[in-house]
């Protein structure tokens, strides 16, 4: 079910939590809201669910305006950050809750509720847990119960707030793939909030990057990574070194850093006009060759092998640059000649 957000704003006291949010999600899409903490992503999700309220702007879900529709009438599946399972109910009762609180007229008979709950628990791979209490199961299992509970009301839209935030790395990876498959099989429309860029890249069809209450960029994971829309996105994603530089006469000059200039043709992106810029250079975009002490501009501090490459910390003047280099003769302590292959430039 499609979601259309137009001009959405939200203030908390003097803090602008969301500002002029424009976002359209097509039915069947899996969209990540990615941003640092405090960027407003959870607030946006809560407004969609009817758990918080906008000061301005509109939300349409499935073509229906949501203004004045309380959370309980929206029928949206919401998975809370810490799952918010009902602690006094068994897993079965948790999942059945949304069906049991329906008005008598639309409430399925108890036998059908039971069948649906069991089917869902089966689908989640946890049929054996139905009699347990939330405190008696693991974090990953709770996550599945929370998902089953949200899906029991057959929501056209699924919202997930940091769905893997409370899990350890191994469980997180397994659940991630599983959630993506579930989304496809059940033809859901899903939005999830995360601060973990790797997670957003691995799961989402499109990623919306939030910066201080605004959407800085919304694009496919590849585009967000390759063509960041502004300096914030470039800095937030892909672990790039950020260097001050000057764009003039068709080249980037890194002075006073002792780096060779880069011609404009080598750049991934750059402003049209000359002037001071910030250059973002990712780890794999560096090259370093051994050099005599007189010609060297940097010193390799330390290096360790990483998948056929060399993960190196290189001292460049007072800066330390992380570089992912092809395996070579360099070793810790070697003076070297460091140069960027390319860069993404944004006006400073």
């Amino acid at each position: 079910m499609s979601v259309i957000i137009r001009g959405l704003s939200r203030r908390f006291g003097s803090a602008q939590a969301l500002q002029d949010i424009e976002l359209s999600v097509r039915a069947g899409e899996f969209v990540a809201l990615l941003g640092p903490s405090g960027s407003g992503k959870t607030t946006l999700l809560r407004i969609l669910a009817g758990l918080d309220f906008a000061d301005g702007g509109t939300v349409q879900i499935g073509g229906v305006p949501m203004e004045g529709v309380p959370a309980r009438r929206r029928g949206i599946g919401f998975v809370f950050q810490n799952y918010a399972l009902f602690r006094h109910m068994t897993v079965f009762e948790n999942v059945a809750f949304g069906l049991r609180v329906r008005p008598r007229a639309s409430r399925p008979p108890e036998a059908e509720i039971a069948a649906r709950v069991r089917r869902l628990l089966e689908r989640m791979g946890i049929p054996e847990l139905e009699r347990r209490l939330p405190e008696q199961i693991s974090g990953g299992q709770r996550q599945r119960v929370a998902l089953a509970r949200a899906l029991a009301i057959e929501p056209p839209l699924l919202l997930l707030d940091e769905p893997f935030g409370a899990l350890d790395a191994a469980v997180r990876h397994g659940l991630r793939r599983w959630l993506r498959e579930l989304h496809n099989e059940m033809s859901l429309t899903s939005l999830f909030v995360t601060h973990d860029q790797e997670e957003a890249m691995a799961l989402a069809d499109r990623v919306a990057v939030l910066q201080a209450g605004r959407i800085a960029q919304i694009d496919t994971p590849e585009m967000v990574l390759e063509r960041p829309a502004n300096a914030f996105v470039a800095g937030f994603l892909g672990q790039a070194a950020r260097l001050p530089a000057m764009l003039r006469d068709g080249a980037v000059d890194f002075a006073p850093l002792p780096l060779p200039p880069l011609p404009r043709e080598a750049l991934v992106s750059a402003p049209d006009r000359d002037g001071p810029v910030q250059a973002f250079i990712r780890a794999h975009e560096w090259r370093a060759e051994p050099a005599a002490p007189g010609q060297a501009n940097a010193v390799l501090r330390s290096a360790r092998p990483s998948g056929g490459m060399l993960q190196a910390d290189i001292a460049l003047g007072e800066l330390t640059v992380e570089a992912l280099l092809p395996a070579g003769p360099l070793r810790a302590g070697s003076p070297c000649l460091l140069r960027p292959l390319t860069a993404r430039l944004f006006p400073a």
Binding site: G50, R74, F78, F80, A84, L85, F97, V101, A150
Partner: peptide, 16 residues
């Protein structure tokens, strides 16, 4: 309030 919020997203009324 998260438990009550969860109940609301699942369609429960205030008294429920």
């Amino acid at each position: 309030a998260t438990a009550e919020e969860a109940a609301a997203t699942l369609g429960a009324s205030g008294w429920q």
